[in-house]
């Protein structure tokens, strides 16, 4: 059972090769001397240099980062409240509509979300720019946050909150002192998810951004429509590197914590 059959080895190898080879090629050719992206002409980091000179890209990156920080923070607050309300509030007027609105954006094609938000912003006469992208990103990523947080809240032992009330906390104190610290990892991963979604989004940003605010994906998209370019390869490599480091660090930290917790639990039981 624990020995891999040749079939499993082959399918895992091929599967992960399929997942990773395209990205590896991309990274490799970002260090290519030649402008011709498919011909290897020697190692060079000149495309990274050019990227750092490219003001349009840097501006777009700055806008993207701003949008991502604001929208993911706002989405985390709203999404956590929404999750808490869904799990804890029992029945209230319009609950079905509310849960529908929380889940719908997860499956909604981005073109539709983008189009509808654009028409709203035009309808109420809101100028398109950073603000409109933040509003749009907050709306769809709060739903992801709420899914992540509510899946944690479902398994949350409600007697912990009751114990806090029993010991003299008000509802708000119980949430702040007990619930929030315990569900914090889920809230943080919700924030990270919202942040990544915002960094990534092309379609909704294209609809809701104006000439004053171009995000990095919009910039990349208009560049790659014309074909492959080594500069984009360099940019992609940087982004892949950041994500990889982040994900590996996060999983190592959480793994270490789990191992330590398990060890301490075992030690406590043995000592007893």
């Amino acid at each position: 059972m624990n020995r891999l059959s040749w079939f499993n080895v082959v399918s895992l190898t091929l599967g992960f090769a399929f997942l990773y080879i395209p990205m590896l090629i991309l990274i490799l050719y970002s260090f290519n001397e030649s402008k011709l992206v498919t011909v290897w002409a020697g190692f060079s980091t000149k495309w990274y240099g050019e990227l750092l000179q490219n003001e349009a890209f840097l501006n777009a990156a700055w806008v993207t980062l701003k949008v991502a920080v604001f929208s993911s923070t706002l989405a985390t607050v709203l999404g956590t409240i929404a999750a808490y309300v869904m799990i804890r509030s029992g029945k209230f007027f319009g609950r079905t509509l509310f849960s529908g609105m929380i889940y719908a954006p997860l499956v909604m094609p981005e073109v539709i979300t983008g189009l509808s938000l654009l028409l709203l912003f035009i309808g109420i006469g809101l100028d398109r720019g950073v603000l409109t992208i933040v509003l749009a990103h907050t709306t769809f990523s709060m739903c992801y946050v709420s899914v992540v947080v509510s899946s944690r809240l479902v398994t949350f032992d409600q007697s912990l909150e009751e114990a806090a009330l029993d010991l003299g906390c008000s509802q708000a104190e119980a949430f702040r002192l007990v619930t929030l610290p315990i569900i914090a990892p889920a809230v943080i991963s919700g924030w990270l998810l919202a942040f990544t979604l915002s960094l990534d989004d092309l379609v909704i940003a294209s609809f809701t951004s104006g000439p004053s605010a171009t995000t990095l994906p919009i910039k990349i998209f208009s560049a790659v429509r014309l074909g492959v370019s080594p500069e984009i390869n360099a940019l992609s490599t940087i982004m892949i590197a950041i994500v990889t480091v982040g994900v590996i660090t996060a999983s190592l930290v959480s793994k270490q914590q789990a191992v330590r917790q398990k060890k301490e639990e075992q030690a406590a039981e043995r000592a007893a």
């Binding site: 032992d157 007697s159 912990l160 009751e162 114990a163 009330l165 029993d166 010991l167 906390c169 315990i182």
Partner: peptide, 15 residues
């Protein structure tokens, strides 16, 4: 939270 009554929970509910 205002009752002079305290409870020990079945799950202990330790924070």
């Amino acid at each position: 939270n205002k009752r002079a009554v305290n409870m020990m929970f079945q799950s202990y509910a330790l924070f």
